[in-house]
Design a protein around this nucleic acid. Structure first.
Lengths: 338, 338
DNA sequence: TTGTAAGCGTTATCAT
DNA sequence: ATGATAACGCTTACAA
């Protein structure tokens, strides 16, 4: 059995209260006794029992991280950055992959809240439903602990949102492509999560302000059951062969972007001469295809750092901004010429 | 403040002991009182405080997952599968990204052990050092909780290893490529972790049993500072221009494999006519390049499921195998013709 | 500056 | 079948 605070207090010839004080950095402890106790702690390798500690402090120093699928290339990155920052701030991370089913999430959230986490981080905009009722679980959670939303926005007391301005980022990218002379831009997406909707809005706005008339015909939804990039490429070929002509493609994520590159290769289109492509997320995938994919970077690392900083602030009782928005940037590679 | 077992017992007009019994599924409780208590629990939405619970049970029903970098495409997948299986078994996952520095890990391990996790999972073979002394922290940990090692093997009491036979998988892949008539095979690697060493051994063995004389000249280490795939491709070009000739490449991971594909494209080599390529891990990256990358699948999902099953067995006091080895399989795509 | 003792919310061992 | 009550290991007023 591992040592307790009683063992240490006994060896040091003091009471457990004094040991507790040095453990918690209380100033009201004589330097000599502090040193004596620390030496004993080091010598015997004592570490406090965190469950017991949690009961007293009413905190496990643990944050619950919820994400749909931590193996998703985008979410994995976010989880990593969050964990690193939380670690640095003295918090542990309880990871919970909920899947994409909104119903299942309520159970997961309850489960994780019962673990007495000090806060909840929802990673990815798929946690925010369009219908208000779908978001009730967020409201419920926020009654117990601060809820942080990464890459989406939800307005409520004790809920804090950190995100990238996807609409604006997409608007600028689409505008830049259009103004470079590419006027027939296909927009490909497969999810209408919070950020998915924002990106689409940004594309629409860009086309509208360019007075492009028939842009709605250039917005194409890739069915959920088509996931492999090769299959998406074929899907695009089909789409093109049905009379849709385009000389640019902008996609809601990098995987779709790579599919577009594959489409071009399959159909002997030169990139970027015949077809320009812009992806989204600026993930490692952008480097895998040839030519390398131009992509919009949504500043995930910056977002994550800010999120943790905000959370720590909230937990320590400070007033923190309820919504923090960063700007995305277009990272130009070889699939665009402008 | 949330409800306690006292609140429930009061509302139900029973003692807390009885409430605790229905909570823990004791059979010794009258059906009518069980129902009454359950109804009240549901009505008021009570969930037991897990810290308090942990003190009694001496278990947080939590497993610590340690990995170097959960955003690594391979490790992320493993973490995801592990979390899913642990969840299904009623355990939570405390994630901890340690980085690749062996020294820093000891601290992380102590930290996570103090959280009273019921077990430790080390994800990735980079946790096993070549020097015995580097692995002392594993021995220390195993004195407190069972330690599971994914994708590497370490023999010690209370340590359980689940892995893929990387040596044999590599041996068979290299043999198959050689026997298809490709005799000058470049082996590319950048890490000599436990599994990295095994893969290299497998390659060597294959070449030896084919009586290939100068195979050591075809083993090439990619320096750590060259990470971007385009840069690795250039590195390979340099290497080739220094008089090394090869018509096949086998790499220790998919990223290097993609770099090899890029090398071929940069040098107008046809794949697979002029150059065959095999990667390792069978990750999503295999699908990103054109042509799609043939790769060795190390059965990560199977490994993860087995690991959790073994861990749960150990925790429930069963005798479980200390080492479980799966076989990898070659997934043929477009970068090979055999 | 230090010690005493009352919580914190459970589980588990006794009795009844 | 149920109820008292002692752990569990820590924090934190309150006393000294």
């Amino acid at each position: 059995m591992s040592l307790t605070i009683y063992d240490i207090s006994e060896k040091a010839g003091v009471s457990i209260a004094t040991v507790s004080r040095v453990l918690n950095g209380s100033t009201k402890v004589k330097e000599s006794t502090r040193k004596k106790i620390m030496d004993i702690i080091d010598e015997y390798g004592y570490t406090p029992n965190s469950s017991a500690r949690a009961m007293g402090l009413k905190s496990m120093q643990t944050i619950g991280i919820l994400c749909a699928d931590s193996s998703d290339i985008f979410l994995a990155k976010a989880v990593y950055f969050l964990e690193q920052n939380l670690q640095a701030a003295g918090y542990e991370s309880l990871l919970c992959c909920t899947g994409y089913n909104l119903d299942a999430r309520k159970n997961y959230v309850n489960l994780i809240l019962s673990k007495k986490v000090d806060g909840l981080i929802l990673v990815g905009s798929n946690f925010i439903g369009e219908v208000e009722q779908e978001n009730q679980y967020i409201i419920d959670s926020s009654a117990k602990v601060p809820v942080m939303v990464l890459n989406a926005s939800y307005h409520h007391d004790n809920v804090y949102s950190i995100l990238c301005d996807d609409m604006n980022s997409m608007y600028r990218a689409a505008t830049e492509m259009y103004e470079s002379g590419i006027h027939d831009i296909l927009y490909l997406y497969n999810s209408l999560s919070y950020s998915g909707r924002k990106k689409l809005d940004g594309f629409r706005m860009a086309m509208q302000s360019q007075h492009k008339k028939d842009y709605e015909e250039f917005i194409c939804h890739v069915p959920d059951n088509i996931t492999a990039m090769g299959d998406v490429a074929e899907f695009i070929s089909d789409y093109a062969s049905k009379g849709h002509h385009f000389n640019g493609v902008i996609t809601a994520d990098d995987q779709l972007g790579i599919a577009a590159v594959k489409y071009a290769q399959n159909n002997n289109l030169r990139i970027p001469e015949d077809l320009s492509v812009i992806g989204y997320n600026n993930s490692i995938l952008t480097d895998c295809c040839t030519p390398e994919l131009t992509s919009i970077d949504n500043q995930l690392e910056t977002q994550s750092r800010c999120l943790v900083k905000t959370l720590i602030g909230v937990l320590s009782g400070q007033d923190m901004p309820h919504k923090t928005v960063f700007s995305g940037t277009l990272v130009k590679r070889k699939t665009t010429a402008f």
